[in-house]
Design a binder for these strands. Structure first.
Lengths: 343, 343
DNA sequence: ATGCAGTTTGTTAGCGCTAACAATCTCCGT
DNA sequence: ACGGAGATTGTTAGCGCTAACAAACTGCAT
């Protein structure tokens, strides 16, 4: 580019350029930019005009350097391809934006302690003011609890007492609702297709299911286990379809329920006539499964939003007590459930 | 926190602290950090030891200020809740990380020109070195082309000649493959459930479908249109199920195909015996639909990765020609397709 | 021994911004 | 008309880092 014929060089304008053009000091420009009081209206106008004319953009690095605030939050996500994490990320980003923060993401393949620590460190090195960890696995949660971090941190996912503020869904409650609903329909008991053993969501949902059965005096069948994918649900479904006395299955998520439905269909087991199926999540597609899936709805976006609120509170508010926020799930009735065939 | 008994204050250590501890100048510390040549090994070791001891972290704002490089890239995404955008974002983030960049996201609700411009501006204000726009809509693409931006920019999505480098999937090709496959099976023609009219993906897939029909001399039925959601696919499916002569439908994405399958099931139209259905995307669940969905696979992650490569090339390489990269989709055969019933 | 090339380290000057304080300027009551 | 409280602006000093140059030190050929 070089220097053009007017002699003005092409470099980005800085505050001093604006100041000169407006005939004020750079500090006054700064004051206008930051909405400081005691700037005379016509001065402000001149400054704003100069800013517009030069298309001036404040340098965020310089500002961050002196204010020690980057206006940026970090998110550590796990496989943000999945509907849940993706929705949370979305919720977090939107909430962050409206609170005036940027969001820097980093996505993990595995949630072992080292990876989480690394991710948080990386974000911290970048200068984020706080971090949200989407931490659905026990390993991640314990990693987060142990985290040697000077950055405010909030976890979202399931989970119990940790030192870290946490937002989670009432997984136990939701699982209990689903299980109880099936029992009320006359099913002698309810089978369970659980998620991976090291995920908190799995554990909580399984526990909610188990406690409800026990409270009702129903037998507790052996748990089947998948990895959240439709494929694993399908495989588990083939196994379950061979068991003669199954009349109801509660799946730990909708994707596995989809695979399960597929397997039952292939095995000639009719849903809901012979077997009732309930999922968890209420992904947008669940209503269009064959048959439409009864499921436990959780609002991932809300989860993300709440997590962000917590973090911003910690950042800007005084000292917040390590909070534990719960978002309640809700049973959504569709056609994959019916009364027990064997009364 | 205040000051502890040793008199050392609690503030984050800075380069000067490391320098003092290691008995060198701060510049030498900087050299070690940046891998500059001409540092004696034992000096380097002492510096590294001091860094470890103090748990020193370079201040990224200070570095960015002086180097004019933020090591951060921006991504403008549209509804990152959807599988496609989420996967691309994932691919972009991973590629960025391995190229040494951070990723700052911002997610849009609508892709009109103003929103895109605003998002890019926001990212630019934050100091990103380049931007990837996940821009599947015509409005976004034209917005991007018009963008008054001093930031290197790459678009990912579909789309034709723009001034902006772009990575896209061979939508026309994939749609042609799907349509041709159905024709080869003896279907007199193929109906099409398209996506929103203002999405480039929709347009390209529709065009691929149309051209293939025309090339084969098949009649071109009226297009049905949805909004990508299973719900809209379901509604379109109810309409299509009423048409007597439909034997094959090509859907512009898998979610709509799911809704379509549901509608056909309810209408008593058997897939694939009476009607064949092909989708687009190959989401992980497609293999577990009832029946399993034949679809056109596209590798979203790869798309994201390529986009990032392009951007980094532009950033670090000399001057890159405005490239147009295409990723080829692939037809995946499953049971939702059969020979025409009406020969 | 002496000088010169190359290596290794240190010193200085900003990057563009805000915080803190200093200097003016207003306007009012007296 | 005069003092002072407030409003409005300007000046100075960094934030923590890297770039550019300067200084000191090494080794080896002479």
């Amino acid at each position: 580019m070089g220097t053009d014929s007017t002699g003005a060089d092409q470099r980005q304008p800085v505050m001093a350029d604006v100041a000169k053009l407006a005939g004020v000091s750079h500090q006054t420009v700064s004051r206008v930019l930051n909405g400081a009081p005691h700037v005379r209206p016509d001065t402000r106008d001149r400054v704003l005009a100069a800013i517009r004319e030069l298309d001036y953009r404040p340098n965020s690095a310089a500002r961050a350097l002196v204010t020690r605030r980057s206006q940026t939050l970090g998110v550590v996500s796990f496989d943000s391809t999945l509907y849940g994490p993706a929705s949370m990320l979305d919720g977090i980003e939107r909430a962050a934006r409206s609170a005036g923060y940027f969001v820097s993401v980093t996505s993990l393949r595995s949630l072992d302690g080292r990876s989480v620590q690394e991710a948080v460190d990386r974000l911290r090195d970048q200068g984020v003011e706080g971090v949200v960890v989407i931490a659905p696995q026990t390993s991640a949660v314990s990693a987060v609890s142990r985290l040697s971090s000077s950055v405010p941190l909030v976890a979202v996912g399931s989970g119990d007492q940790t030192r870290v503020p946490m937002v989670s869904v009432g997984n136990r409650y939701g699982a209990g609702e689903a299980t109880g609903y099936l029992l009320d329909l006359g099913h002698r008991t309810v089978h369970h297709l659980a998620g991976p053993a090291n995920w908190l969501e799995s554990q909580d949902r399984e526990e909610g299911w188990r406690l409800t059965l026990q409270a009702a005096g129903a037998p507790v069948p052996e748990v089947e286990r998948g990895d959240w994918s439709a494929r694993s649900g399908y495989q588990a479904g083939l196994r379950i379809a061979r068991l003669p006395d199954v009349t109801a299955v509660f799946c730990a998520n909708d994707h596995m329920a989809l695979g399960l439905l597929r397997a039952f269909h292939e095995a000639g087991r009719h849903v809901p006539q012979e077997i009732s199926v309930i999922g968890f999540d209420d992904i947008p597609e669940a209503a269009y499964f064959t048959p439409p899936l009864t499921t436990v709805r959780q609002d991932f976006g809300e989860l993300g939003r709440r997590a962000l609120e917590l973090l911003v509170g910690e950042l800007e508010g005084a000292v917040s007590p390590p909070a534990q926020v719960q978002v309640s799930p809700e049973l959504v009735l569709r056609r994959s459930v019916g009364p027990s065939a064997r009364r």
